[in-house]
Structure formats: C-alpha cells, structure tokens
Design a protein around this nucleic acid. Structure first.
Lengths: 348, 348
DNA sequence: TTGAAAGCGCTAACAG
DNA sequence: CTGTTAGCGCTTTCAA
C-alpha cells in the first residue's frame, strides 16, 4: 500500500501537521525536524495524494484544453507547446477534441468541470456561447486561444486575423490576380480573415465576388471538394488563385488541382494559413501565413496560470502578428491559363 | 458555491447516503425517493466532486498516455482515437510527450502516479525499464502500445514489425533494388523492422551492408541528414532505395533528394512507415506501410479499461497486421542513375 | 427503505 | 516549534 502522511508522521515521530508543512514548505520549524521528515519521506518513497489535497482546495494542477481536433497538425503542434509549458509550471493538461460539435463542446466542459480542472484553454469555436458564459459567470479561469471574440470580455490570445487575411490576399493581388477565391472555416477567425481579404481588394480598387467566398471545415477532403466546387463547368470564371484559411484546405485544393491537371502555381496560385508541418511536405512548398504557434501556446498557459493564481480574469488581449511565408505555390497570374483553353473544359 | 451532496440531501429531505446511492445507482430505495432526489439534483445543477470520490477509492477516471511527441502526426492520430474511445468509456486522458528522454519518462510516470491515473498507455520507448517495472510491481494497469517488448510480460498491442520491415524491403527488392538503406529509429519496433529487412534480403539471396543501416530519431530534419549521410561523396555506392522507418524520416529523405537534384522515384525509391497524413500530402504520394491506427488505439483503451476493472493484468498480446500502401515514391531500379553519372558527383 | 457514522489523505486554523 | 482538530465531499458498512 502507498504510504500516507500518517505513515510518514509516525515513522518520523512527528504529527501529520508537521509533515504537511514540510510538504508544502510552509510554516516554521527546526531545520533538523524538516530534514528528518524529508529523509523519511524519501525513505518511504512517500508521494502526496493529489486527490486529497485537491479536496482541501489546493487545486488539481490540471488544465483543460479544448480544441477541434488533436490530429490536426495545427492543434497538435499547439498542444505540444501548451503541454510543455504547463509541465514547466507544474500542471498537466487534459485534451478534448470537440470536432466543432456543440454537443461535445458542452459535454467536455462539463467533464472538465467535474474533474475540477484549475482552468480552461479554449481553442474551439463554441457556437453556443452560453457554455463559455457559464464558465465566466462561475469565475473559472479561462483563456481563449485563436478566437479573438470581442463579444466575450475575457483573456484571449490570437493572431491578427485581419492582417493575416489582408497579407495573404495582397500577396495574390500583387501578383496580378484579380479573381481570388477564399475558402474559409466556420470559425470566428475566418470571419476576420475574410474581412482582411475584402479590405485588400478595396485597397487594390477591386471588388470581390460573393461566390468566391466558400465555407467549410478543416480537412484535406473538404479542401478538395471546395476546389471542385470552384472548378465546376457551371462556373464561368473560376479563380486564378485560392486563399485557403488553413494548410489542410490548401493541400486539398492542390490535390484537387492535380487531379484535374491544373498546374500549381502556373495555372493556379494557392496560399494556406498556419504554416504547419504540412506546408513543408508538399512539393513545391506551400506559401502560407505563419502563426507563431509556440509563442502563442506558451503565452496562453502563462496567462491562464496567472489567472488561476490571482483568482480573477486578467481580461488581457494578446494579439500576435502573422507572417507571410512565400514558398512555391503562388506565382504571377497566368492570363492564358492552359486549363481555361482546354483542360478545364474537357475535365470540368 | 457549487452544490454538495449535503445541499442536495437537505433540500430533498433525505440523508447524504441516500443521495450517494442514487448518484451511483446502488442500493435499493423507494422509486419515488430516487425520483425526487434526481429531480433536486437537476434543479440544483448538482455535480459530484470527482476528487472526493477518488479519495474514497473509486478511481480518477483518467488515463495517462505516454508518447514520444504529440506533434508527430502518427502519435497525434493515435492520440485522437485513444481520446475518443476513452471518452466513450467515461475516461479522460492526460497526454505526456517524453521526447524519448529518460528523465522525462521517469518524471511523467511519477506525475501521472501522483495524479492517481487509473492506468497507463505507454507508447514511448523507456530505455530505463525499471520505471515500467515499478509500475508492474505495484499492479498499476498498463498497456504497451507499438512496443512489442517481449522482455516485459504485460499486455501490449502493436503491429507485426517484422512483417512490416519484411514487406517494405521485399517490395523494394522485387523492383530490382539490391542496395537498400534503412533509416531506423532508436526504438524496439525499429529493431524488429530491421530484422524483417534482413530476412527479406535473405530470401532474395542477398546480403545487406551494415553501413546501410542508420539510426536516428523521428523528424523530417533527421531524415534529411541521414539522406545526406548516405549520399555523401565518400560513399562509393549510395543506395538506390531507402526504407525509412516512419513517414517523417521518409519525407526528410525526399526533401534531401530534391535538394541534391535526385529524382524520386526515378533515381531513388523511398518507402515510409505509418501511413500518416504526411504520406498523402507529398507529390507523388508516399509509398508506405500502414498501421491500423484507429483499431490499435481503440483496442488499447479497451484492454486497459478491462484491466482496470479486473484489477489485474490480462497479459494479452495483440498484434495487428501492417499493410503495404503503394503510392508514387517507389519504382523499378534505374541502373543508370542520372546522379551517379553527374549530378551526384557535382553536388555530393 | 433509510440514515448515522467512520473513514479516504490532506490542509489550515488554532492552541499549546 | 509542534500538535490537535475540524473539515473538504463522497462512499460504504451497519444498524435501525
């Protein structure tokens, strides 16, 4: 059986209160006593029972992380930095993949609350804001990650999605593209990126067509099907460039293009978002907008832990700056697209 | 303040024992009483405190998952299926990335033990077997994932690494390759794959050179540097094919080859292992050996939960079968490699 | 059918 | 400087 504080106390010839004090490094006592207790604890290989200490209000030293899907490289890379930082600060993290599904979102915050996590990191969308609001109402430490939702007055860290959308689109516009489609996610961040996309068009004195704005969920498959939607024979003027709101979608687009014999970047420019490992595995490499994943993850944990310590929301808003990473999938617009003349008409 | 069992009991006009019974669906009582209590619990939005119930020996309903790195797609895909299955069975999972580092391995199992996880899933290597042995000694439920280590008499689920190594190598051999390098990981599974690699050579009446066997850790960068090691001007006969023990290494090899102007698969065939998302994002797609990730993850959780329930190890050994997935990075050996004649000599 | 009471292992006054 | 004691919220045995 595992040794308890009583076993240690008995063996050391002191009271459990004394042992508790050395465990928590609180109170005063003769140095020799402290040493002896430490000695005994080692000897017995004593380890405090966290469930018990949690019961007395010391917290569980665990964080809840809600994200859409841990198998999505963006989130797994993010989760890794969060895990590391949390461990550095003495906390563990329980990850829950919500699949952007209301039911799961609700279920998992309940689960995490039942487990008495000390705080939440929310990287998922939460269509049903009430779930988050109840967390806020109950003063449960919470920070929003990658969702700079202004309707919620809480701490959040994200990137400047407006700038990201603007930069991506400007890069394409600067290459002469004037028919640019955007494949967005059903997410707050995508809304903002769309705004940036529109603003870039404004600056260039151009207007964007509503039918060039697509919505979907993050996956390669969805990227491919959005591509097919765009390059369908009923579309009289398919885009010369596509801005996908994340790397997975961009890869789906590239694959769809390849299947139709459309060359990237010669006939179609593609730009992604996130700069995950996926952006480096394609040939040519994917031009994308980079998010400083590690900094964001670390900062998020630091803020959350600070909130937990303070017992109240910092309501801080941290916005990182995205960066355009030019690789090989974007190029100057090609006015005489091969596919426009034949391939597209044949295969579309 | 959160409602406790006392609050519910008082409001329902019963004792806490009764409430406890309805919570756990144990004992008998008048149906009307049960209903009334249920009613009140809903009304007060009562949620049992898991820390308290854990204290009384009911377990924490959480599993510990030790893997080398959650940001590695193979493990993040595995983690996802584990997470889902665990949730289905009412458990959460705490993920720890060990980086194949002894210190972290030790530290994390201690951490997880301190948190009283109900069981461990070990997908990491553990050079220091004593850590695992202490878990076994203390009868802590534990199942090994992807490490079919025969020196440990415990439940484990893995794939047939021998067959995997054999199939990958045979595929190459069948294409006429007779100078095949293998880039292995510092892991038990890789040892077995090497055995399969050698056996395939035997069957083909061929012998493999020791200098064609490389060891490293999983990462694209390491794949690239192993490639460079192989295709170094001091190597008189670089391989015509490379079997990388995971997809990331394979991609590193492909990138290294591209940098040196060596065409895959014309001048060099490359085969990976795992069949992660990465294998589908390269162009051409990566030929690889597939592991049934979901089945493995689910089975692992099921076995672990069963062990937890039974309170003793099943000592079951589950071996899944790997499958060769032929995509575009392998082809017939090209006796007159372009690089052999010029590019390699110029750039090597 | 129900409840009283003794823990589970630890923390934190408070008292000596 | 050290120990006594009253919880923390829940489970479970035993008695009523």
């Amino acid at each position: 059986m595992k040794a308890t504080i009583y076993d240690v106390a008995k063996k050391a010839g002191v009271s459990i209160a004394t042992v508790s004090k050395v465990i928590n490094n609180t109170g005063n006592m003769r140095e020799s006593t402290r040493q002896r207790v430490i000695e005994i604890m080692k000897e017995m290989n004593y380890r405090p029972n966290m469930a018990a200490s949690a019961l007395t209000g010391k917290g569980t030293k665990t964080l809840g992380l809600l994200i859409p899907d841990i198998s999505n490289p963006f989130f797994s890379e993010m989760a890794r930095t969060i895990e590391d930082r949390a461990h550095e600060l003495g906390m563990s993290v329980i990850i829950c993949s919500t699949d952007e599904n209301d039911e799961k979102e609700k279920k998992y915050v309940e689960l995490l609350r039942d487990k008495n996590v000390d705080g939440f990191i929310v990287g998922a969308s939460f269509k049903d804001k009430r779930v988050l609001q109840s967390l806020i109402k109950d003063h449960i430490p919470l920070v929003l990650l990658t969702h700079d939702d202004v309707s919620l007055d809480i701490t959040r860290v994200s990137i400047d999605d407006f700038k990201g959308g603007y930069e991506a689109t400007s890069h394409l516009l600067a290459q002469g593209h004037r028919n640019i489609a955007i494949i967005a996610e059903h997410a707050y961040s995508s809304n903002i990126r769309i705004t940036g996309y529109k603003e870039a068009h404004n600056i260039y004195g151009d207007t964007c067509k509503e039918e060039n704005i697509l919505r979907t969920f993050a996956s390669i498959e969805n990227g491919r099907s959005c591509f097919n939607q765009l390059f369908n024979r009923t579309n009289p003027s398919p885009p010369t460039a596509i801005f996908a709101c994340n790397d997975q979608l961009a890869i789906g687009v590239i694959q769809g293009a390849k299947e139709k014999g459309i060359d990237v970047p010669v006939d179609l420019s593609v730009i992604g978002f996130d700069n995950t490992i996926l952006a480096t595995t394609t040939v040519p490499g994917l031009t994308t907008i980079s998010q400083p994943i590690s900094e964001m993850g670390e900062r998020t944990v630091d803020l959350l832990v600070e909130e937990i310590k303070r017992g109240e929301s910092l309501k801080e808003r941290v916005v990182f700056t995205p960066e355009l990473i030019i690789r090989g999938t974007t190029s100057k617009v090609n006015k005489n697209n091969k596919w426009k003349q034949n391939i597209y008409l044949e295969n579309g």
